[in-house]
């Protein structure tokens, strides 16, 4: 059986918006190669003297935009208490299943450490599994987990090092993370501007 479509293809003008864009006829000048070659050489030599856009990376670091999804951080509130309440929404929202946590009840005397009555005793992110999609940040009802815009996850040389525990994730008090989406948004070290609705 023939595999051709039977209807007439000349009628395949489906819309009235089509424009023919390719012209395969070469003029004599084009057939002589040289004009196009000289034109091309002129273009490239112009670039030779142009300012280069190259970013000298290790010395110069590019600003990644206010909402870049970089390194994870577990925020503390203004009093330095961990905000995370170990609800597990981030872990559920994670398409890569990179987050795991163990919840624990806050004991007496730990109010200075944890804001909510439940906290994450273990909070681990597998940095090699993580795809930096930002869904955990969006899922967190307590605004505890953030993806920093100013820092990226470093490279690893050993497979054992890739699981980041709380020691590496929880915000350091002397290095508070601020995300300023744009100048109109007020942001404090404790309440980074919000994921959405801020911009």
């Amino acid at each position: 059986m023939s595999a051709t479509v039977s209807h007439n293809l000349k009628a395949m003008q489906l819309t009235n918006r089509s424009v023919q864009v390719s012209n395969k006829e070469m003029t004599m000048a084009e057939k002589m190669y040289l004009p196009a070659i000289i034109g091309g050489l002129a273009i490239t030599i112009r670039h030779f003297f142009r300012k280069k856009p190259t970013i000298q990376y290790p010395e110069v670091k590019k600003y990644l935009g206010p909402i870049y999804r970089g390194h994870h951080i577990l925020k503390r509130d203004e009093q330095g208490r961990e905000r995370c309440t170990a609800c597990g929404l981030c872990a559920v929202a994670c398409p890569a299943e990179a987050i795991s946590m163990v919840a624990a009840e806050r004991q007496k005397g730990e109010e200075k450490l944890y804001r909510e009555e439940k906290y994450a005793a273990v909070y681990e992110i597998n940095m090699l599994r993580c795809i930096f999609c930002g869904l955990c940040e969006e899922a967190c009802p307590k605004q505890a987990v953030y993806l920093r815009h100013d820092q990226m996850v470093p490279i690893f040389t050993e497979r054992q090092d890739v699981i980041y525990g709380k020691d590496k994730l929880v915000e350091k008090m002397d290095d508070r993370y601020i995300r300023v989406a744009n100048s109109e948004v007020k942001a404090t070290p404790t309440e980074p501007s919000l994921t959405r609705a801020a911009t």
Binding site: I45, H47, F48, R50, K52, P53, T54, Q56
Partner: peptide, 8 residues
């Protein structure tokens, strides 16, 4: 090559 290609 780099300079023709806007690189360093």
């Amino acid at each position: 090559a780099a300079f023709l290609q806007d690189r360093l």
